[in-house]
Computed example of a mutant assay.
Amino acid sequence: MFERFTAGARAAVTVHAPTEARRRGDRRVGTEHLLLGVLHDVEAAQTLGVDIETARSALAALDEAALAAIGIDARGVERATITESSTRLPFTSGAKATLSRALAVARRTGARRIAVVHLLAGLLDGDRTDPATNVLAEVGVDRVAVRARVVP
């Protein structure tokens, strides 16, 4: 399924994103996990101007704010992690849409393989309700400006 991906993009999607999901105790790989997976790539992190720890902290803050909005105080509560398992975590519909957008960008630019830069473009093109979009906004990334630099 991921044979059209470069080694870096394949690692971001099939290794790092599921690891990030398990680390957070999530049972599905969402766009927020894809973003964290992409941030394992040093060049992508530099392009966004965000390191992985900052993005993880922003995601945790967004989680706490969402829980607080419904009356749950989760400050100081540690999330359970899911231990490594041989079963693959399924992708959310948002994550699948991000991968489709990355493929479309790769095709539009004439690339033969989907690279990390295409994944990044797919993440930057998410709608405002997308978890990765919320993380990017939380850390102050100007998605339009970065998208223009990433894929002209």
Rank of each mutant, 00 (worst) to 15 (best):
V15R: 12
T109Q: 15
T47Y: 04
L123T: 06
A145G: 05
H118D: 08
T109A: 14
L67G: 04
L67S: 11
R107V: 13
G30R: 12
L124V: 05
L119S: 09
A74G: 12
H33W: 02
R4H: 14
D73G: 10
A61R: 14
T92G: 02
V15F: 00
V13L: 02
A74C: 10
T54C: 02
T6S: 15
G71V: 11
D41R: 04
V141N: 01
G49N: 07
A80M: 11
A106P: 10
D130K: 01
R128C: 03
E43H: 14
G140N: 07
R107E: 10
L59N: 12
T98H: 09
V151N: 05
A61Y: 00
D63E: 15
F2R: 11
E84Q: 12
A60S: 14
A65I: 05
R113L: 15
L120D: 00
L39T: 02
A12V: 01
R28V: 13
V146Y: 05
A60G: 07
L103N: 09
I72P: 06
T92N: 02
V105L: 12
A7M: 03
V135E: 07
A65F: 06
M1F: 08
R112M: 10
E43W: 05
R4Y: 07
L120M: 08
G37R: 01
D26H: 14
H16S: 15
D73H: 10
R128S: 15
R112Y: 12
T31W: 04
L48M: 10
D73M: 13
T19K: 11
D127N: 15
A111V: 05
V141R: 10
F2C: 02
T6V: 09
A137Y: 01
M1Y: 09
R24Q: 10
A104R: 14
T31C: 05
T87V: 14
L120V: 01
R4I: 05
T109L: 14
T81C: 02
R4M: 12
G8T: 08
L99N: 06
L39Q: 03
L39C: 00
G94V: 09
E43D: 15
L67A: 13
V38D: 04
G76Y: 11
T87Q: 13
R24F: 09
S57Y: 08
P90R: 12
T109F: 08
V150H: 05
P18I: 09
G37H: 01
A11Q: 14
